[in-house]
Simulated scan of single mutants.
Amino acid sequence: MDALCFLNPLSGESFYARYYAEELARFTPRFPSDAVPLIKQLMASSKAQHRMMGPFLCLVFSAGPTGTLADLRGALTNAETRLLPGFRASPYWEPEAWDWFLTARPELARVLEALAASDFPTFRREVLGDLVEQRAAELRQRLAGVDVIAEQERLLGHRLEEDITIDLLHFSKPHGIKVIGQRFLTHRTYSDALIIRNAAHEILHPPFDATHPSILAALEVLRRDPLLPRIVADHDPAFGYTTLEGLFDEDTAEALEQLITERLGVAVPARERWRKADDGMHVLAAGLYGLLKADGFERTGGVIQEWLGKAAHEGRLGSASLHASAAGVLGLPSEQLWVPPAPK
């Protein structure tokens, strides 16, 4: 998984490379130069599909074995048998996404071959030593008494598996990445509180059945909002969430996560969080959170999918109600909930 995430900074994009200047300076001289244009090509084509390359590749490959670089190469070669069944059975299945993956397979195979030729596994061990093992031991002790799953079940309204798997990575900044199953990827240096927040957030995805009539009805209301489609169109696409459906999924999870982490005592204050995160684009999350708090949803629990359908039916997801809720959470006038980023 670290190998897949390292493709982002290897592409040269400043959004990722800024976190790994030292590692890139050490690794790039040993990396075949003809592989870099292939990574750039993969990055561009994934963006055209409104997908973040590294996180998406981690998602697909999580349908198969991911312990070694050799595992990845074997799974890619035999993707139809090793990856397709698990990916198709997951909530993330999209035929278009799989088609892109197969189209990108030749270039991706050459990139993984280049990582093997430059001995990325040894390079990673040189960079990390035993830091991951040390951090894992610390986290096991800290997380032993934290029951994130129970809180999530209360708000989702359905049972989850008992365990969460956390992969500690080095090259994953700035993302937390949910993959197939109750598994997510996070950076090894993130604080205990942040990793608990990651766990509280990532396992919520997807927070609802995107094909359910109540969710489709809610989406129709949100599409008529004068602000939300503009945020989707005009925000920095490096943050992801380039469709309204994707933003709705993410911001519902963020609103629920905020309720959970407040109960667990590890929350960032809602106003501070959403005024800063991703250039302030998560207005929908703030609005949903405010409405959920007004209903005491964090105390009563419930089925979030049913709550969203009811809120849409009652007009509470309409712009007047939603914007007023977001304004109260963010401490901003309703007409100033989001400012588009300055052109670069």
Results as ranks from 00 to 15, higher is better:
2 D>I: 04
5 C>P: 00
5 C>I: 02
6 F>D: 05
7 L>D: 03
8 N>I: 01
10 L>Q: 04
10 L>H: 05
11 S>K: 03
16 Y>T: 05
21 A>I: 12
24 L>A: 12
28 T>G: 04
28 T>F: 03
29 P>L: 05
31 F>V: 01
36 V>A: 04
40 K>W: 04
41 Q>D: 14
44 A>R: 13
44 A>G: 13
44 A>V: 08
58 C>V: 10
58 C>D: 09
59 L>Y: 04
62 S>I: 06
63 A>H: 06
66 T>F: 00
72 L>D: 05
75 A>K: 02
77 T>A: 14
82 R>E: 13
86 G>A: 11
87 F>E: 05
88 R>M: 11
88 R>N: 01
92 Y>D: 15
96 E>Q: 14
98 W>D: 01
98 W>Y: 08
98 W>H: 00
102 L>P: 01
104 A>P: 02
105 R>N: 07
109 A>M: 11
110 R>F: 02
114 A>E: 01
116 A>G: 13
121 P>H: 08
123 F>M: 08
123 F>V: 10
125 R>L: 06
132 V>A: 11
133 E>H: 05
135 R>Q: 14
141 Q>L: 11
148 V>C: 08
150 A>S: 15
152 Q>C: 14
154 R>V: 06
156 L>C: 10
159 R>C: 07
168 L>K: 05
174 P>Y: 06
175 H>Q: 11
176 G>A: 14
181 G>W: 08
182 Q>L: 09
184 F>H: 11
185 L>P: 03
186 T>P: 06
186 T>G: 12
189 T>Q: 13
192 D>I: 06
193 A>Y: 02
194 L>N: 08
196 I>W: 03
198 N>S: 12
199 A>W: 00
201 H>K: 11
204 L>W: 04
211 T>Q: 15
216 L>K: 15
218 A>E: 06
218 A>F: 04
219 L>M: 15
221 V>D: 11
222 L>P: 01
226 P>E: 13
235 H>S: 12
237 P>E: 09
242 T>F: 02
243 T>F: 10
244 L>C: 12
249 D>P: 02
251 D>L: 02
252 T>M: 04
255 A>C: 11
255 A>G: 09
255 A>R: 04
256 L>G: 09
257 E>C: 14
257 E>Y: 01
258 Q>G: 01
258 Q>F: 01
263 R>P: 00
264 L>I: 10
267 A>M: 01
280 G>Y: 07
280 G>R: 06
286 A>D: 07
286 A>E: 10
289 Y>Q: 09
291 L>K: 05
295 D>S: 12
295 D>W: 03
295 D>A: 15
307 W>K: 15
308 L>V: 00
310 K>S: 13
315 G>V: 02
315 G>W: 05
317 L>Q: 07
320 A>F: 10
321 S>H: 13
321 S>W: 06
324 A>H: 07
324 A>L: 10
328 G>F: 01
328 G>Y: 03
329 V>E: 04
330 L>D: 01
331 G>E: 12
333 P>H: 07
336 Q>S: 14
337 L>C: 12
340 P>A: 10
343 P>C: 05
